[in-house]
Amino acid sequence: MPTEYAITYSCENKYENKVRGAHWQFLIIPQTNSSQEVLSIEFTNSLLEAESYSINGLGFKTIRLKTRKSFKSARFRAKMRVLKSEVNPFDFPLENNAEESYKELKSLNFRVDHEAFLKKTDLTTLPENSTSLWSLDTSQTVFTNLQNLNKLVNAYLTFQPSTTTASSTLEEVLAKRNGVCQDFAHLFCALARMNGIPSRYVSGFLHQGSGYFGDSQMHAWSEAFIPKIGWVGFDPCNDLLAGTDYIKVSHGKDYRDCAPIRGVLFTTGKNETIYTVQVEGDQQ
């Protein structure tokens, strides 16, 4: 049975000094894919500027806003309705021949095709002393291995808001052993990639009905590519597979490809962004 979600993304930016003109880009519109469909988007802003829609360099839909007005604060709100069909994360044919999967992971063609999600980035580079945190057990299927990785990351880090920032490296995260969903996702990607499994960072919304971690903000999880099966979503922050509650917006190599808001501002001084997300589900 599909679920209709009403998602509200609200954001308030405050600036120390007057801003004279700005551009913003929001990467918050849920992706339209086999399990989800956007029914409507309603975007409002305190500057009363008309928004426009575009597609960014990595192929995801964006909301753009520009202004030439002067201001010291700006508020934005997007109300989106999304229809999500029921997702059973285990709904795929099991790998009956693990050996073949491992062979494919090693093949040049496979590595070339998934080059983007096999390489290290600044945010997914493991410090020297942590490279052996996890390794593949080839006696088990790739899927089982990834489930283990999900569990391991979940256990290794403690969910703790405000200890890390969007630009925290794994070195900092692993030193503290705590972080937020982004850090869990980065660690998952780093370890999977290190072991030759293509893995991407996913940004989206999580329906919190059942008390998951992820507070009232956007959520982040990972997707890993399993030969013959395809991309499968793992949420290391909650040690779950991404199911019906997960509404995907975008994916990329790491957080930087998926930042929900980007701005170009003509001002000096500090700025502060506060945003909240509300996801309400209504089963059809």
Binding site: S54, I55, N56, G57, R64, K66, V264
Partner: peptide, 22 residues
């Protein structure tokens, strides 16, 4: 394009890459 690449670029044009991609 500061919306696509370096956000601190004052030399670029916000949104240029999307126009190019299109």
């Amino acid at each position: 394009d500061p919306l696509e690449f370096r956000a601190d670029s004052a030399l670029g044009v916000p949104g240029l890459f999307a126009a190019y991609k299109k």
